[in-house]
C-alpha cells in the first residue's frame, strides 16, 4: 500500500483513495474503494453496520494500513480531529480537565480551552465531571476536543446519534461553523436528513463498495424514475401527476382557482436510493 502526504500528487484534493482494499484474514472489508475529497467539503459516509465506514476512516487517519491501493492525505495525523460515537471522554474528570489533557498533548495554550468551551456552550459546566453531563453535553464536549487544535480534517462518527432535535441542531450549527473555516469533514451517519442538510457529497457504502457517490440532491434526482409531482389542495386532496407539459396546465388551473396548498417533486430520498441499489436498509 502506498501512502503519501504530498499535496502536488493529490491534484487539489485533500484526501484521495485509489482502489483501496482491506482484508482481515479471508474477509475483504473494503473492495477497491476510490474517493477524492476537496478541502473544505463535508463528505458523508453512509451505510449500514459492517459496510466499511469505520475501516475507511481508520485507513485515512493512519490507524490502519490498507492491504493494497493508494492513500494520499494532505495532512498529518496531528492535523486531524476525531469525534467518535462513544466520545472517549474521561468520565471522572471535569470538562476542563478533559480538554486540558489534550491541550497539553497538542501543545496549545490553555486559554483555548475556555474559547472552545464557550463555543460549544459548556462554559458554565466547565468544572462539572463528565459523568454528570447529559448525552448532548458530552457530544458537544467531544466536538470541542476534536476541534480544539484547529485540525485540517475532522472525522465525526454519528455525532448526533440519540440526541434530541434542539441539541442536534446545535451540533449541526457547530459543524457548519467549522466547515466555514475551511475544515474538511468526514461525517458518518444513519440520519439521512442530516446527510442531506450538511454534506456536499455522500458516499453510499455497501459491503465494502461505494455503490453511489455524489451530491445528495443529485443522487436523489438521478434515481427519480417516477418523475411525478405531488400536489396538495386546500380541500385536503392529495394528487400525484406526471411531471410533464400537461402538468403545467393542471398546476396553473389549480393556481388560478386558488386551490393549491403545496407542490412537491417526488424524487426519492437517500434511504430509498440505498434500498434500490442494495436491497437493504441503511440502519
Amino acid at each position: 500500500m502506498k501512502k503519501s502526504n504530498m499535496r502536488n500528487e493529490s491534484n487539489g484534493n485533500i484526501v484521495v483513495l485509489s482502489n483501496v482494499v482491506q482484508r482481515f484474514g479471508e474477509k475483504e472489508v473494503l473492495k477497491g474503494i476510490s474517493l477524492a475529497v476537496k478541502p473544505g467539503e463535508i463528505v458523508g459516509l453512509l451505510g449500514p453496520s459492517g459496510a466499511g465506514k469505520t475501516t475507511m476512516i481508520k485507513i485515512v487517519t493512519g490507524q490502519l494500513e490498507a492491504t493494497s491501493g493508494t492513500v494520499k492525505v494532505d495532512s498529518t495525523s496531528k492535523e486531524m480531529g476525531m469525534m467518535m460515537d462513544s466520545h472517549g471522554l474521561y468520565e471522572r474528570l471535569s470538562c476542563y480537565d478533559n480538554l486540558k489533557l489534550f491541550a497539553q498533548i497538542y501543545n496549545i495554550p490553555f486559554r483555548r480551552i475556555d474559547e472552545v468551551l464557550q463555543k460549544v456552550g459548556l462554559s458554565e459546566a466547565k468544572k462539572r465531571p463528565v459523568d454528570k453531563l447529559s448525552k448532548g453535553m458530552r457530544g458537544r464536549l467531544a466536538l470541542a476536543r476534536a476541534v480544539m487544535h484547529e485540525p485540517k480534517i475532522l472525522f465525526l462518527d454519528e455525532p448526533t446519534s440519540g440526541l434530541d432535535p434542539t441539541t442536534t441542531n446545535q451540533i449541526h450549527e457547530l459543524i457548519l461553523e467549522e466547515q466555514a473555516k475551511g475544515i474538511t469533514i468526514f461525517l458518518t451517519t444513519h440520519n439521512m436528513a442530516e446527510a442531506e442538510k450538511l454534506c456536499q457529497h455522500v458516499a453510499l457504502l455497501h459491503e465494502g463498495n461505494i455503490v453511489e457517490y455524489g451530491e445528495p440532491k443529485e443522487i436523489c434526482r438521478k434515481y427519480n424514475h417516477q418523475k411525478k409531482l405531488q400536489i396538495r389542495l386546500y380541500d385536503g386532496k392529495c394528487i400525484e401527476i406526471a411531471n410533464n407539459k400537461e402538468a403545467a396546465e393542471t398546476v396553473q388551473s389549480y393556481l388560478t382557482q386558488e386551490l393549491l396548498e403545496t407542490i412537491h417533486s417526488t424524487e426519492p430520498n437517500l434511504e430509498t436510493v440505498f434500498m434500490e441499489l442494495t436491497g437493504s436498509k441503511l440502519e
Binding site: 487517519t61 490507524q63 486531524m80 476525531m82 467518535m84 472517549g88 489534550f102 498533548i105 497538542y106 476536543r145
Partner: peptide
Amino acid sequence: RVLMMSQV
C-alpha cells in the same frame, strides 16, 4: 484510542 489518535 482517542489518545493514540492524538499523537500519543
